[in-house]
Simulated assay, not measured.
Amino acid sequence: MSDNNTPETETPDVDATGTAKKGRPTPKRKDQEAARRRPVIADTKADKKAQRDRQRVQREKEFQAMREGDERNMPLEHRGPERRFLRDYVDARTAPGEFLLPMSIVFVIASLAVPASSWAGFALIILFYVIVIGVAIDTWLMVRRMKKQFIAKFGAKRIPRGWTFYVIARHLNVRRFRAPKPVVKRGEFPV
């Protein structure tokens, strides 16, 4: 029934029950297990060293991106337009929060010089608490204003997770030491 030009397909062997045979012997179990077997622990020292080197290179790349403001190579927690908006809003403000750490160092040194039992020592402590409370109120007001502007721009569903701590930590840090590096000047609030 076939032409001389068309190749004939091979028909699989059929056993007595009428089922097709697979045409090769079943492999032995020990051969199959040996083929799948891998060492449980490879060269751990070399693997750990290679992993540390990869992580070091990645951290250096991310650190460089944070210094330069290259958002593509920053760590994930700093990427995206939402995080950029939050950073730019904080960086555009001149707030007492960024001067809290240097002021607290000055207060510690001054408290060592002035005895706490004197009226000057008492006034120094009260002044420090007033500044801390003022910074706390300013931070609270900033977070409320920022949330309103963020929702107006991006919507309530796009608020990043942990954004409040992110903003407060950046707000209380000295501008020069903030990471990622500020890219807006003071007064240039994001629109």
Rank of each mutant, 00 (worst) to 15 (best):
M66E: 12
R52A: 10
P160N: 04
E188I: 03
V114C: 09
A110P: 03
V14S: 11
I159S: 07
R158A: 14
A152V: 04
R37K: 10
R37G: 10
A20P: 08
D3F: 09
V108N: 10
G69F: 09
D70R: 06
V191L: 01
K48L: 06
R87A: 04
P75E: 00
A156D: 05
A113C: 15
E33K: 07
R161P: 09
V184W: 00
G121C: 14
L172H: 11
D47E: 15
E71W: 10
V40P: 15
V191A: 11
G187T: 01
I109L: 15
P81D: 13
Q51P: 06
T164F: 10
G155P: 01
R59E: 13
D47L: 14
L172T: 13
G97N: 08
P180A: 09
K22I: 09
R145Q: 14
R144V: 02
I133M: 03
R36G: 11
E188V: 11
P160G: 11
F177N: 14
L124S: 03
R175V: 15
V183A: 13
E33C: 04
T26N: 06
K28G: 12
I137C: 00
P81H: 13
S111D: 13
I168S: 11
L124Q: 08
P7D: 07
Q64G: 13
Q64S: 15
P160I: 03
E82N: 00
S117H: 13
K45H: 13
I159N: 02
Y129E: 09
Q32T: 15
M74H: 01
F177R: 10
R79K: 04
P27W: 05
G134H: 01
Q55V: 08
E188P: 06
V167D: 01
K22T: 03
V90Q: 05
M103N: 04
P27E: 10
L86T: 03
G187I: 05
G134K: 09
D47Q: 14
T19E: 06
F107G: 03
Y166R: 13
R87D: 08
D3Q: 11
P39Q: 13
A123Q: 01
V143S: 00
P81A: 14
V135W: 07
R29E: 00
P25V: 06
N173L: 13
R158K: 11
F165K: 15
R24N: 12
R67G: 08
I125F: 15
I151A: 00
P39C: 11
R175M: 13
G121R: 04
G155H: 00
F189K: 03
A120P: 08
R36T: 08
G23R: 00
F150W: 07
P102F: 05
P75Y: 05
L124N: 12
A20D: 12
K49D: 12
V184Y: 01
V57A: 12
G18V: 00
D31H: 02
